[in-house]
């Protein structure tokens, strides 16, 4: 079994024992290169940003030239795109979706609402900071970001996967307790 996570966690600055050899290291590079070239995105839209995904998926901006394609189930997906404001009802679905996705998985927060609330910062219904509840790899600022920004974000995400800096799923494991505590603080009941 190739220990890809150890290599990546070494990049993060975490101490690991020096037992992996160069072959394993290069295999990890190839594996990450393959991962970044076949990303599957959960076909899930929240808020108003879903409207920007239609030109992105279709011929105008053509997401498929990056090897990306929407996937209808979270269990076969790699990327979760949060496309707008998140309220408590949606957050429960997002966490459920995120936890069903297999590793490695990446989250992109899209627009200003998941970053800090955006125009809904004082609304009783929307949670303001999404990164208090699940880890986020990449933010796209703007309201709304144009499809060009999303394309740029995907390119950045691919670079981050190659570098090993897209480590949200590992941070979720490392800080699992505080994340779960935060989620339970705002949910009265789960379903």
């Amino acid at each position: 079994m190739v220990d890809d996570e150890k290599i990546v966690s070494e990049d993060m600055g975490v101490q690991v024992e020096k037992n992996e050899n160069m072959e394993m290291r290069s295999f990890g590079t190839v594996k990450r290169w393959a991962t970044k070239r076949s990303l599957w995105m959960v076909h899930y839209c929240t808020g108003c940003g879903g409207i920007e995904l239609a030109p992105l998926m279709t011929s105008r901006y053509d997401m498929e030239r990056f090897g990306m394609h929407p996937m209808v189930t979270p269990r076969q997906s790699d990327v979760l795109l949060i496309t707008g404001y998140v309220n408590i009802k949606t957050l429960k679905r997002i966490i459920r979706t995120y936890e069903q996705m297999p590793d490695p998985k990446y989250v992109i927060a899209f627009g200003s609402c998941p970053i800090n609330g955006g125009p809904y910062w004082d609304s009783y219904a929307t949670i303001n900071h999404l990164d208090k509840y699940i880890p986020i790899d990449l933010y796209i600022a703007g309201c709304m970001p144009r499809p060009q920004s999303i394309v740029r974000a995907f390119e950045d995400l691919m670079d981050m996967i190659q570098d090993g800096t897209a480590d949200g799923y590992m941070r979720y494991k490392k800080y699992y307790e505080p994340y779960k505590a935060n989620q339970e603080k705002i949910f009265r009941k789960w379903w």
Binding site: H129, D131, K132, N182
Partner: peptide, 9 residues
């Protein structure tokens, strides 16, 4: 409710 929650990391 929301602003009192600390960042997990």
């Amino acid at each position: 409710k929301y602003d009192s929650i600390p960042f997990a990391e």
